[in-house]
């Protein structure tokens, strides 16, 4: 069980990371806010089940990605638009000069559009492994599928992304 003070501390620590992953998954800020809020609601509801010896970040990812996939399965009408550079956008590490930042934002827009075109399962794999830097085993556990399925989904997702981004940057 998590004590109230500890829960507040965990929200302070992990909410920004959860929000970034949610933005990459959903493609827009409003849906990302809803997704993070829903995930934290589940976490708060089930906080009595949490063992403090476990990794809270992994638990949070697992809940958030499953909430996302379940909502995608049940509500295919969910509107998604590609990530737009918005005010207060945090550039990735090593962004460098303004010219480089502009190139990155252009590439980011294209990547957001290409990601939006992927099925939810493939996108979740790409976000977890390629964008969040998790390994295959963590992705498999989070998404509730075998490691081989993660590899297969990544192969298909990257092929689709290369096809979508091909004309740009020689990808």
């Amino acid at each position: 069980m998590i004590a109230r003070e500890k829960l507040d501390e965990l929200i302070e620590t992990h909410s920004a990371k959860a929000y970034q992953a949610a933005c990459r998954l959903t493609g827009n800020q409003a849906d990302a806010c809803d997704l993070v809020q829903e995930a934290f609601l589940r976490i708060i509801e089930k906080k009595d089940l949490f063992d403090p010896g476990f990794d809270f970040g992994g638990w949070m990812y697992r809940i958030m990605f499953r909430v996302y996939l379940n909502s995608r399965r049940s509500r295919e009408r969910l509107r998604e638009v590609p990530l737009e550079p918005e005010a207060g956008s945090v550039p990735a590490a090593g962004a460098g000069s303004p010219e480089r930042a502009a190139e990155n934002s252009e590439l980011g827009r294209s990547i957001g559009a290409a990601l939006a075109g992927l099925p939810a399962e493939l996108r979740a794999c790409v976000v977890l492994v390629d964008m969040e830097g998790m390994d295959y085993e963590f992705a498999a556990e989070t998404l509730g599928c075998p490691v081989g399925s993660v590899a297969g989904r990544l192969f298909r997702a990257r092929r689709a992304l290369r096809a979508a981004l091909g004309p740009m940057e020689g990808i």
Binding site: I11, S15, A92, A93, D130, M131, G133, I171
Partner: peptide, 28 residues
């Protein structure tokens, strides 16, 4: 390119909303 793609910063007040949620919600 995927690793270098940034994500928007969290909106102002969103973290406070989550903290308020934690205080308002009783556990299961």
């Amino acid at each position: 390119a995927l690793r270098g793609t940034g994500a928007p910063a969290m909106p102002d007040g969103f973290k406070a909303r989550l903290l308020a949620l934690a205080q308002a919600m009783p556990s299961a």
